[in-house]
């Protein structure tokens, strides 16, 4: 009986967590220059001078010319386009980091 109840609670918890995660957070894009990459966080300075710190995880795709590259390719000084999601830009998790040619600000 206890096993049954535990199983039901486990299934419910799994469904609640899974279902709640399907509700998307807001998408953000950060465009700029890598200032720092350390401890699974990347700091990007955008053209307005603001620096945003964004989390990375194992699912974060790093690409250059649409090809996946290793995370070790991320270096300070590179121009990047970071697509992230979260409650706010500061709390965001990077989904994809594109390494792009140097951005010349107009």
């Amino acid at each position: 009986m206890i096993q049954k109840i535990m199983m039901r609670l486990f299934v419910m918890a799994a469904l609640v967590v899974g279902a709640s995660n399907t509700f998307a957070h807001e998408d953000y894009r950060v465009i700029g220059t890598v200032m720092k990459y350390q401890d699974s966080r990347i700091e990007v300075e955008s053209k307005d001078g603001n620096t945003t710190s964004i989390r990375l995880d194992r699912q974060t795709a790093i690409t250059r010319d649409t090809q996946k590259v290793d995370v070790t390719e991320l270096e300070v000084g590179l121009s990047v386009v970071v697509d992230a999601y979260g409650d706010s830009a500061e709390d965001a998790l990077a989904l994809e980091i594109r390494i792009v040619p140097p951005i010349v600000n107009p």
Binding site: K4, M7, V11, L15, V16
Partner: peptide, 17 residues
């Protein structure tokens, strides 16, 4: 059991989560 779990899950999701 699965049906009951899904029902309670949706209830929790809609009313609390």
């Amino acid at each position: 059991a699965v049906g009951f779990s899904i029902f309670v899950t949706v209830l929790i999701l809609v009313t609390l989560v």
